[in-house]
Amino acid sequence: MATAQETAAQEFTNVVTAHRPQIFRFLLASTRDVDLAETLTQECFLKAHRHWAGFRGESTAMTWLMRIAINLQKDHWRNRRMQFWRHTRNNSVDLDEASEWLPSGESSAEQKVLAHERVGQVWKAVEDLSERQRTVFLLRFVEELELTEIAHATGLNEGTVKAHLSRALAKVRGELGGRR
């Protein structure tokens, strides 16, 4: 018979397997830096492992992990702002490179060009969003979380999430409209 410790370890392994790609994707979209996203994902699961015993299941494991990832990301940017000289080591890919990844469904060349242009415009708008607006926007439109889940993950109330989301959408709409 497996001990409680072994069961917990197995549970945690399952959580890592199930949610690692999603956490990585969120961090990649937030930072546009593959190496940084990998490092922060590792840190996120390390932190989660340390506090796994304290996870009471009040929210889903995904929301809990996302909250850790958001905090890690915030800490990272805060430290980076203080260590201004580190800006030289910024590995973020530029917007054009990020827009290179096209949705696979587009078949004709024209559709591909249009999709490429749209993706670039959304990236441009995302870059101009505030940190909080960007987080909320990515959680909603990339990770497809519900407002309540976003509220749990960010620690904001649902009304604030909605307000951030609507401001973010207005900026994206403006970017798309301005270039049309």
């Binding site: 949705p103 993706v119 990339v142 959408l169």
Partner: peptide
């Protein structure tokens, strides 16, 4: 937070693009 069709299409493209980039990375 109503989405018009153009915005919806752009956001779908964006999501799929991020997903394929993330998967590759």
């Amino acid at each position: 937070l109503a989405l018009d069709p153009a915005l919806k299409a752009a956001l779908d493209n964006f999501r799929q693009s991020v997903h394929s980039w993330s998967e590759a990375a």
